[in-house]
Nucleic acid binder design. Structure first.
Lengths: 247, 247
DNA sequence: GCCATTTGTTGACATATCGCACGAATTGGC
DNA sequence: GCCAATTCGTGCGATATGTCAACAAATGGC
């Protein structure tokens, strides 16, 4: 079933920077032969996943079905959304739940209170794990060796002047998250944004997700986050652990 | 490239009702041979799109990449989100933007003010077109014959006691949306929810999306929606038309 | 306007896939 | 614990696909 893998690779070459691609572009990006890329694209178009104007291909909303099928598959979003809403309203700040995929975190639920992020975060959105509070908490659940591998795979481009880019420095923070049971980020992913995250465990004690609160750095310095929000986060963490028993 | 199409069909069989499926289940749903379904699933697992515990397959968050690649592809969400936020705050109600995919509308942006929906709507969420205000506005942009075809394809199961299920009755409402320039829904998609939608045009005058406001039926009867919200909707509609000139 | 370069398309051959059928393993009922 | 009924895994032949190369068309520089 080699065709399937190639087709998926073709779909993944369409990004915000390259929404419209020619056959040759896709071939270059995937490493496929031009003829093969062409067949992939024509198949996608024939089945309604892409459109072709004779020169460029574009993905259609139909592709969203593939992803949302997966989101709908997860019981986590529906379970946590109301709890997240309540938490967010009580503390007056945005909170989110995410899971780990390779070297990225994927938002599965979010309750936005204010717009501190310049980018719009929503379920399905991705951020690199190495510079986010939820990412560090999720990485902390893995064996150290695997964390290094994942970090080495993704690029550690600094997103702000404060972003840690040295693998050893990040490993230290991940270790700290493991021993402390939470992680704090001070404007590493975006200037003016601090956040604190805790892991969410299932019945077996495995970390399956992370839960965080993000605040504006102007409202509160990063060092004050634990005293301000850890109690609320731990409370929700415990409730979620109870609910995830059935999974 | 028939393998690609089959693989995509396999992915789409995973829904909220069937998050974990065996080989035979997938084969039944797709109409594929068990051996073929097995190869598809193993390929998906091998490339990180699925997981296999020896008995059941589950999709992984990696699949979300396929969909979000498409969402990121569209400039529309980023363009409209801030405008939607402003509108929503000004009128104190939830507003959304969606596009048409076959017989469904797909949310691409949303600014939630209150929780009137029992289901969580977010970018990527889908609702049937025939019983939503945005759906009727989007259908109104198509030739009548094509509308009938799309309606006939999807099932017109009533979602509330007030849902229109007769094709001719729905066609009448679609026609009305076309001549009026807007559509109003009175608790057809969910009890207690009314909404009003207008089309969003690009530079060529083509309808590319729909914009709506949803309110609780207890706050305001459906017949009052036009006077209350049409001015604000039309204003945003005009601004969007101007912004979409570059597309 | 011409030539060099890149891109899109088509045909042929080697190869991997599909669907079928069969045996092994699992499940479920009694 | 046994038997019936599914379900799972796997060869095999026919078929369709991927790759490669050559050709046609388009692009772009000068």
């Amino acid at each position: 079933m080699i065709g399937l893998a190639k087709g998926l690779a073709v779909i993944e070459t369409f990004t915000a920077e390259t929404p419209r691609q020619s056959i040759t572009e896709v071939a270059r990006r995937t490493g496929l032969d031009r003829a093969t890329a062409r067949r992939c694209l024509l198949t996608l178009a024939h089945h309604g996943y892409a459109e072709y104007d004779g020169k460029y291909f574009t993905l259609t909303p139909r592709v969203l079905r593939l992803g949302t099928a997966c989101l709908a598959t997860m019981p986590l979003p529906q379970l946590v959304q109301p709890l997240l809403d309540a938490l967010s309203e009580r503390i007056g700040q945005s909170s989110s739940v995410s899971i780990l995929d390779a070297d990225e975190i994927v938002y599965v639920a979010r309750a936005a209170q204010r717009k501190v992020f310049s980018i719009a975060l929503m379920p399905g959105s991705r951020l690199p794990a190495y510079c986010t509070s939820m990412g560090r908490v999720l990485l902390a659940a893995l064996p150290a060796q695997q964390v290094r591998e994942r970090l080495a795979r993704g690029d550690l481009a600094p997103r702000t002047p404060r972003t840690l880019t040295d693998i050893d420095a990040i490993m230290l923070e991940v270790d700290r998250a493991r021993t402390q049971g939470f992680a704090v980020i001070d404007q590493e992913v975006e200037c003016g944004l601090c956040s604190i995250a805790v892991p969410v465990h299932n019945a077996h004690g495995q970390t399956v997700a992370a839960l965080n609160v993000g605040v504006s750095a102007f409202d509160m310095p990063a060092r004050d986050l634990p005293v301000a929000f850890l109690p609320a986060l731990n409370q929700l963490q415990a409730r979620l652990a109870g609910m995830l028993r059935c999974l």
